[in-house]
Amino acid sequence: MTATTTSATELAANRRDIRPGRIITWTLLLIGGLIMVTPLLFMFSTSLKTAGQVYDLKLIPAAPTLDNYIKVLGDGRFMQWFLNSTFIAITVTASNVFFDSLVGYTLAKFEFRGRYFIFLAILSTLMIPTEMLVIPWYLMSSQLGWLNSYWGIMFPGMMTAFGTFLMKQFFEGVPNDFLEAARVDGLNEFTIWWKIAMPMVVPAISALAIFTFLGNWTAFFWPLIVTTSKELYTLPVGISSFSAEASIQWELIMTGAAIGTIPTLLVFLALQRFIVRGVMLAGLKG
């Protein structure tokens, strides 16, 4: 009897919660979600189709096949591009975490003449679009002999204004008492940064690492410009080259793209709680 009464009350409460405003919100969110998910579903769907089925827009293929995966993974070039992307994304991410944190910490925790000016100068570079920078980068790479090299692909992103800004904001929240306690305990400034300050901003480091990794994993424009040798292609550039050959092989492109999303999905799933916090902080403190 009690159970019946309770469930009737809950039902009434739930009914009260369903308001027109909520229905509109949910509908909009559902539409937004579908728009986001559909290309991904088509990507996976197409990767399971044969060349002849590609323009059959059914989401579930009539005769799913893993041939494309066998073909792509069996192609030595694909693995090379995958490794290139992995090496570049990891190196640039590590570099960003290290240098952005170091500069962010310095700007947040040390008093010196010109500190504010340096911060503004770094921040102002965020206003310059990448398209404007590509030509100077290319000329610089050309003059320094960096064209067609890993370093040529990586150097523009080894340190970013965004990362510096993000880390500075986080380091400002680290109480000075921790750093001073370590100073009294006899640590040098580098060790204080590494042993004390860095572990306290792990959420920021994770967010920065994810942003940087995703950005570099999917980078297309600059790697396409700076590389001509197929051995140095990154995954997005390599996959796009499937379309540049005799015909556009959508099923292979989609298969490559599907494999390429796996590391990003894994990274994101593992660290998504940090990325949300990172985005929130970057937004709130900006």
Partner: peptide, 20 residues
């Protein structure tokens, strides 16, 4: 002299014990 060269120890208002 730097703090570390003075061989003194300090206890802070907020304890400053490292959370990690």
């Amino acid at each position: 002299r730097e703090p570390k060269q003075r061989n003194i120890a300090m206890v802070f208002q907020n304890y400053a014990i490292y959370p990690h």
